[in-house]
Design a binder for these strands. Sequence first.
RNA 1: UGGGGUGUAGCCAAGUGGUAAGGCAGCGGCCUUUGGAGCCGCCACUCCCAGGUUCGAAUCCUGGCACCCCAGCCA
Length: 561
Amino acid sequence: MTTTEKNDFIREIIDEDLKTNKFQGRVHTRFPPEPNGYLHIGHAKSIRLNYGIAKDYNGKFNLRFDDTNPEKEEQEYVDSIIEDVKWLGGEFEDRLFYASDYFEQMYQWAVNLIKKGKAYVCDLNGDEIRAARGTLTEAGKDSPYRNRSAEENLDLFERMRKGEFSNGAKILRAKIDMASPNINLRDPIMYRVVHEGHHRQGDTWCIYPTYDWAHGLEDSLENITHSICTLEFENHRPLYDWFLENLGIYHPQQIEFARLNITYTVLSKRRLLQLVQEKHVSGWDDPRMPTLAGFRRRGYTADSIKVFCDKIGVSKKDSMIDVAMLEWSIREDLNKNAQRAMAVLNPIKVVLTNYPEGKVEELSAVNNPEDESAGSRMVPFSRELYIDQEDFREFPPPKYFRLSPGTEVRLRYAYIIKCEKVIKDVKGSVTELHCTYDPTTKSGTATANRKVKSTIHWVSAHHAMNAEVRLYDRLFVKEDPNEVEEGKDFLSNINPNSLLVLTYCKLEPMLGTATPGDRFQFERTGYFCADMKDSKPDAPVFNRIVTLKDTWAKIEQKGKK
RNA sequence: UGGGGUGUAGCCAAGUGGUAAGGCAGCGGCCUUUGGAGCCGCCACUCCCAGGUUCGAAUCCUGGCACCCCAGCCA
């Protein structure tokens, strides 16, 4: 993994804080997910930022679950998040925390604010609250309960905790300013009554703190120095500051950056949840999902995700990163590190009419041209082979260099062959090619240097391993899936061809020994990963991680225009 | 028509008064037993716009414009 000298606006702020000794030279960050879904690559950006800063400044990094809403949170999500953070190399050591463990302290702080006359219990219902909040251009109205005495508020708040009130009957609000131009400051809600079991606290509580009230307290308790969050919380910073100041407790600095967007995908937990629940994908770890679990199963390496996150930078500008950047990151990694193999995805049989029947040669093939230490392997060669349908055209278009009637190509690591005869079935589709091979052109021999326009991959028919290969493509057809026609939603932009399952693929024998999670470059085709759930030694299943760059596809595309 | 933010190439992004880094994409060429990889070259006379200050402005000032966020008892 590359270590680039990073300097973004957040590190500039930290440098300044270090200079002025604002936090006594400490740097302590945190990643505070709510366990209400799986982590996606937008979270990876945040993890890399927070963890990277802690590491670069010799500071500390916490993983903290912001589990303040029992209605949406589950243990399954907690488990998956821990796994994903670890996978990305976010080392939190023994610093795994839960906001819900601070509930008692938060409660006491709320009591403190009530005693100071800075918080009150309000009986207004949801509609009434909304109506009294005012609008963007008009001030709100004070709640009729705003001036209850501290004694009454204390009593009511305690009874809220005891469970005397039903959901929504009462709330605790901060007493700030109903006329503030910042709506977040119009007496925001600190606690609501929620009679619902909590994944960690069980039935201990029936009042739950809101994000605005809780978040700064969590940061303060953990001695966080720089509380890094996304842009939409910028409007909340005055509130974050207000609570900490009025409580008179340790005050971290909140800093906001622009969240990640990537073309041809969605990165919102709400939408990802919908994709899962409505079964547009097979689950949170569907290889088409932009979740970390999805990328992992697809075959992306943690390193490639890290490099991607480090390369896109950090700023406050709303942005949409070209997915090509992500694809570049994984190709870059796998080009250097993936073992090469030959696999025929859409087989067409080739018979070498002048090659002896029953003869088998073992030919040497390089494992990775980018890495000499990867060595080589032997691949069986015989009279009957498979090549890809893509590599033969009966009527070749201009600049098509591969096999066609009467032309020659080299078989990778083997011989030059010439197509002599095309065999078709009654319907006229090509079923088999009769070719001859040139025995003087065996790869690696002195006379093998004759040039042909193209080299194609192949697999010996008798030795081939059958396999299922899943060809994944982008999940959406639009750069911005949220851009939709009137009355439609992002689901209307789902790519109907995002998954193509090929069940008659032919692999070179070595691939039969792949263990789930192993990655290969199928030469000339792309990078593939043995599926971690479905691949079996006798029945391999491979996922296409990403295609190789395909110059020919580009040429062909241009020709059509 | 309130408040908070952001505008540098197709997409990201450096730049902090001294004359526009870098990456991705794209386009040429070289090389190649992967149409992969690699290598070389090209790709902003101009930084949202208009004025102003200055010997000198993407950087400072003034005035516009565009886009994003905020009216959950979500985070």
